[in-house]
């Protein structure tokens, strides 16, 4: 299943490394990645594939969100379909 991971946080060293480590731990494959600084905030969107992961999707969403909170990051993972539905005809 393809999903979009969004990470928003106050910029600091090592955010991408930390997020990638979390994804690796759950066998989530990164397909594409965009990162920029928007109004001083680190903003990253990733297209990922979760089909290799053995963790159920909803649980993965929660795990990433919780791990993000502990690291001071706002991490969300949503199925790609919702964005395609709203932004593509």
């Amino acid at each position: 299943m393809r999903a979009i991971v969004t990470v928003i946080a106050k910029d600091r060293v090592g955010i991408i490394a930390e997020v990638c480590t979390m994804l690796v731990a759950h066998q989530v494959n990164i397909l594409d990645l965009n990162q920029t600084i928007l109004q001083e905030f680190f903003t990253m969107t990733m297209l990922v594939d979760t089909s290799m992961s053995t963790t159920p999707f909803a649980e993965l969403v929660q795990t990433l969100s919780d791990a993000g909170k502990r690291a001071g990051l706002e991490i969300r993972m949503q199925r790609e379909d919702i964005f395609n539905a709203m932004h593509r005809i």
Partner: peptide
């Protein structure tokens, strides 16, 4: 891929 601004707009 859906671009960052579209993702952020939805959020």
């Amino acid at each position: 891929m859906i671009n960052t601004s579209e993702v952020l707009e939805t959020l």
